[in-house]
Design a protein around this nucleic acid. Sequence first.
DNA 1: GCACAATTAAAGCCATGGCTACACTTTTGT
DNA 2: ACAAAAGTGTAGCCATGGCTTTAATTGTGC
Lengths: 147, 147
Amino acid sequence: MPENDPTPSEQSETAERFNQARTAQALALLEDYTEMIDDLIRDHGEARVTEIASRMGVTHPTATKAIARLKREGLAVSRPYRGVFLTEAGTRMAARVRTRHRVVVDLLLAVGVPGEAAKLDAEGIEHHVSDDTLHAFEAFLRARGQV
Amino acid sequence: MPENDPTPSEQSETAERFNQARTAQALALLEDYTEMIDDLIRDHGEARVTEIASRMGVTHPTATKAIARLKREGLAVSRPYRGVFLTEAGTRMAARVRTRHRVVVDLLLAVGVPGEAAKLDAEGIEHHVSDDTLHAFEAFLRARGQV
DNA sequence: GCACAATTAAAGCCATGGCTACACTTTTGT
DNA sequence: ACAAAAGTGTAGCCATGGCTTTAATTGTGC
Ligand SMILES: [Mn+2]
Ligand SMILES: [Mn+2]
Ligand SMILES: [Mn+2]
Ligand SMILES: [Mn+2]
């Protein structure tokens, strides 16, 4: 059985696949929080820690830590005892993430996934949808006139 | 603007969505390792730590820790300096996960996702595909005669 | 304008999943 | 048979993302 080992010192295709999945997952939290903060500012004019935590389903110290990471990565700023605000980069991420989220839900619905499952599963799936896949989803929806 | 707060002491729909995504993610590592170990035993008659680590794209101590968790959760057993083996539960998980992985790849291909992206993205997406969604995917593929 | 409620911050605990460094066992080649 | 190589185990470090508890600040009602 010829084990076709890929050129030495190079990762197997399998390993690369898992590495990409891990990288995508590492961004998931940032993506969900920026989208959420953007939502809150649209709907309420401000994004408060307690409200963010409540909607994310975590305690407020957990949300505070996540926001600290957003700030560290240049996606958000905040004023103590006031709200959280997105930077330019954060706003761009929120816009991209919102669109992708919507496309994923629409795609799931278009292939026949029940509404409830589509909403639930999309929250996790979205973070693993690459640009290529997103474009394919959009093309599929367009071809179906579902967009 | 009437904020329709869901019955007090009950999580918002949004929070539930994020909680489900977190729960699914917590199982991802177990799912990928059981599938991998099952693959290795099929192809090589045994699953060794070094080989598992290499294919997962991690160092061997990282794989050893993951295997420790599999054992703790009753999915695998191992004999020191020998291989890793799946329990009944582990074998069942591997079978379920393998099928789901294949269906996800096929679904992505069927809606027009390029092969390379389908293979890469499926590795992360699969863990967030619920039973309802999986069944919808299968129905869609059947209707297309792509199964 | 003050007491109390609500919000936010800060500290510290735990589990997970990466890593490196080092020790030990098994396998291999001569 | 034994030395070297490969494989495996173990210890300990770090970052992340959950949590509870306690302190500080802000907002509210009277
Ligand atoms: Mn999400
Ligand atoms: Mn989302
Ligand atoms: Mn996977
Ligand atoms: Mn898989």
